[in-house]
Each structure stands twice: as C-alpha cells, then as structure tokens.
C-alpha cells in the first residue's frame, strides 16, 4: 500500500499549487539549503533575533545611561563600538535597538499583510466590481512612492514609533493585496474549490480554509522581502526625526544623532548604519532564496 502511494506521486506535475505538502517541505528545504546566499541570510536573521531576545544579557552597559565624562570615546576594549556624544555605549544601544527595529519591522509587515491578505482574498474571490474597486484603491496607494505615502500618514497622525509602524505597514497593504489576489484567482479556478462548494461550503470557509492555506508561499516570500524594506523605511523616517524620538536607541535615530560628528567621530553613525544594512541584506537574500525554493521551475 505504501508502495502504491509512492508510485502515484509523480502524476501531479502540471499544478504548481497542488504540490504535495510534505514532499514540498522536503524539496523546499533542500533547495533552500543548497542556496548558499539564502543560508547566509537565514544565519544573519537568526543572529539578529537572538540579539534582540537577549539584549539585556548581552549589553555591557545601560543603553540610556548618560555619562558625559566618557563621551566620544573611539572603539576600544571597554567600549567596542565607542561611545556617543552623551557618553552612552554604542554597542549596548545597538543591541537594544535591534528590538525596536525588528519589532517595528515585524509589526508593520503583519499589519500590512493582514489587511493586504483580506483585501486580496476578497477582490480575487468575488471579482466583478468588488475586485475593481479594491484594486483601484490599491493602485492609488501604490502610485505614491513608499516613503512619501509614509510621510503623508505621519504628518496626519504625528511622529512616533507606533505611527511609523502604521505608516510603513500601510504601504505594504497594496503589495500583499496584489499578490494574494493573483494567487486567489489562480486557486479559485481549481477543481477542488468547485468540489468543496458542491458540498455546501460557504464563502468564508472556502476563502479561509481552502484558498488561503494554498497561497501561503507567495505571501511568506513577500513578507520576508517586505521586512527588509519596512525596516529600512522605518529607520529612514526615524532618521528624519519622524519616528522613534531620542534618546530611544532606534538605529535610524542613532544615525541621525551621529550626523553632527561624521568627521570627528564617524563610528557613532557607522555602527548603526552597518547594523541596518546587514539586517536588510539578510532579509533580502533570504527572501530571494525562499522565492527560488518555492518556485516550481527551480526544481530539477
């Protein structure tokens, strides 16, 4: 019997969405691990997550403690990344800052994905005028450059950490909506959706139980790639003074305060900048690797 199940497997070649789940996960992991860049990305991300979780244990100093006697010390054995103009240890601030950046990033992406997925599912499933209305609104949102849209939202809501999260998250909504709508259109034509409907399932069951689980892979890829952009945008907005406010150890804010000492004490700006760049790089290459692993054309 087990033999029979095995020999039947290769029959499903034509559908991309109907890949068997377990073999899919296996395939997926093997392709992902073959992709060196993606593995580097994954290691970077795991490292940052580790740092964010254990920041209080890892940080050698209090990130908020002002000590004017120790200000502007270049990197040394006491202060690996030096101290800033108020004598705060930059390494400790970066370690704590990872919590803020990751927190903003993840919250904003979840916020954007949540609404994007709902809009996309509704638009794709119901079609007709509902689809046109939702997607035109999404097009309008997409027509703005991301940072400009975020600026507009913040100028309405006022600066602050939560508002920045909402602003950068809002910009992700149309991107998720588009991808989800496209995948929904594809999946809803498949025969099993008809089969489920012929059993008397209502729209909500069909959408959330039978369509959503089958379109998760593009959503996960998009989510990972969006994390990079969102973290970068949030840092950018904080740099402009619209996000996290000093003395918060948010990397964008730190970058901004290092601006004045770019020539005398460049390390104040360099280390937060590096922290942002490496994290964004990590998410980007990991996201690309994920996309390749999910793409059936990459399979040999």
């Amino acid at each position: 019997m087990t033999l029979e199940a095995k020999t039947e497997q290769p029959v499903v070649i034509t559908q991309t969405m109907n890949q068997p789940k377990e073999s899919k996960i296996k395939d997926f992991l093997s392709i992902l691990t073959m992709n060196k860049a993606a593995m580097v990305g994954a290691i970077i991300i795991l490292f940052y997550i580790f740092v964010a979780l254990f920041a209080p244990l890892l940080a050698p100093y209090d990130p908020y403690e002002i000590n004017l006697e120790n200000k502007l010390i270049p990197p040394s054995t006491d202060h690996w990344m030096g101290t800033d103009d108020k004598g705060r240890d930059i390494l400790s601030r970066i370690l704590y800052g990872s919590r803020l950046s990751m927190g903003i990033g993840i919250t904003a992406v979840i916020f954007g994905a949540f609404f994007g997925i709902i809009f996309g599912l509704i638009a794709g499933y119901y079609g007709k005028w509902i689809d046109s209305t939702i997607m035109r609104i999404m097009d309008i949102l997409l027509a703005f450059p991301g940072i400009l849209l975020a600026l507009a939202i913040i100028s309405t809501l006022g600066p602050g950490l939560i508002n920045v999260t909402i602003a950068v998250g809002a910009y992700s909504i149309p991107l998720f909506a588009r991808i989800v709508r496209g995948s929904t259109l594809e999946v809803k034509r498949l025969e099993y959706i008809d089969a489920v409907r012929s059993l008397g399932a209502d729209d909500l069951t069909i959408i959330f139980k039978h369509i959503l689980p089958n379109i998760l892979s593009p959503i996960i890829v998009q989510g990972t790639l969006r994390l990079a952009t969102v973290i970068l945008s949030a840092a950018g907005l904080s740099f402009l003074g619209l996000g996290a406010q000093p003395p918060s150890p948010e990397w964008g804010t730190m970058l901004s305060s290092g601006r004045d000492f770019l020539f005398s004490a460049p390390y104040i700006a360099i280390f937060p900048g590096l922290a942002i760049s490496i994290l964004v790089l990590g998410f980007n290459i990991f996201g690309d690797g994920l996309r390749d692993a999910f793409d059936p054309r990459m399979k040999k």
């Binding site: 029959v11 789940k21 008809d194």
Partner: peptide, 14 residues
C-alpha cells in the same frame, strides 16, 4: 456531486 479529476478535486493541504 463527484468530480471527474480525483487528482485535483481534493484540497492538497488538508
């Protein structure tokens, strides 16, 4: 109703 194509008539992830 029973459908023609048993390969595609079941939800692949349930």
């Amino acid at each position: 109703m029973i459908f023609q194509e048993p390969m595609t008539s079941l939800n692949p992830v349930l």
